[in-house]
């Protein structure tokens, strides 16, 4: 009998799991396309609920963007545990000799790519449909989207894992996760508004500080408590 080989560590295993998730997503593309279409649809629908003479596009766009991002993100995160529970693949992950936190990290990483991918299409779409000049603020916006998405994905992945095996999972996930998105969406939307108004990112310093703190605290805490959400 061969000796027990060295199992991959936290980051190595997380990377394998993330790559596997992205391969599945790339193969099927179903969740990504749904999330994308959902985003575009909601952007378009918002347009028709809008009176351009009363509210300027730059004032409306931040809300549209971030509401769209949170909902499409939740869709992807819910699905990311669906592939594990479908044929009991989660059991295989749990019997493998990898740290359980690596499951969280890997899933979160794949979800981050997913969420950023949707945003990369949705942002130009908003710019196009609402006739907004995002060009000058592009770098700052990209940084903001990354910061906000980290928090979004940390909390979303944790709750998606928790609700995956419950009844009503697709309903329960947003109910549980949305309150946690308040300190993400509020700073993100406010900062987006500032950037679209052509202000320097420095003026949003107080908001960015909240975002950064949220990311650090919740990425750490969610990773810590994630094993508690696994079947035991």
């Amino acid at each position: 009998m061969s000796g027990v080989p060295a199992a991959p560590g936290l980051l190595g295993a997380a990377w394998m799991i993330a790559r596997k998730d992205l391969a599945i997503e790339f193969r099927t593309r179903s969740a990504f396309l749904s999330a994308l279409v959902l985003s575009l649809l909601s952007i378009v629908i918002f347009y028709f609920a809008w009176d351009p003479t009363a509210i300027g596009a730059a004032d409306l766009a931040p809300g549209v963007l971030w509401v769209t991002f949170t909902f499409s993100g939740l869709l992807g995160m819910h699905r990311s545990f669906g592939v594990e529970s479908h044929d009991g693949a989660m059991d295989a992950l749990l019997t493998a000799p990898v740290p359980r936190q690596s499951i969280f990290l890997g899933k979160a990483l794949a979800n981050l790519v997913f969420v950023l991918g949707v945003q990369a299409v949705a942002l130009p779409a908003v710019a196009l449909f609402y006739n907004l000049p995002v060009g000058p603020a592009f770098g700052a916006l990209a940084l903001l989207m990354l910061l906000a998405s980290i928090g979004l994905v940390a909390v979303g992945t944790m709750f998606a894992g928790m609700t995956a095996n419950t009844r009503l999972a697709e309903l329960l996930l947003p109910v549980l996760a949305m309150p946690f998105f308040v300190p993400i969406v509020m700073p993100a939307a406010k900062t987006t508004a500032l950037l679209l108004a052509g202000r320097p990112i420095g003026e949003a310093f107080a908001w960015l500080r909240i975002l950064l703190a949220f990311d650090l605290v919740f990425a750490y805490v969610c990773m810590l408590v994630f094993p508690l959400t696994l079947d035991d």
Binding site: F180, P183, M186, I210, T229, D232
Partner: peptide, 29 residues
């Protein structure tokens, strides 16, 4: 029962961590 208690504990703890963040951002709002 055990699973319910465990999940609830996690949500309770995360909620306690969340409250200051909501307070801070709403206050800034």
């Amino acid at each position: 029962r055990e699973q319910r208690a465990r999940y609830s504990a996690v949500v309770g703890i995360l909620g306690a961590v969340l409250i200051p963040f909501i307070h801070l951002s709403v206050y800034l709002f």
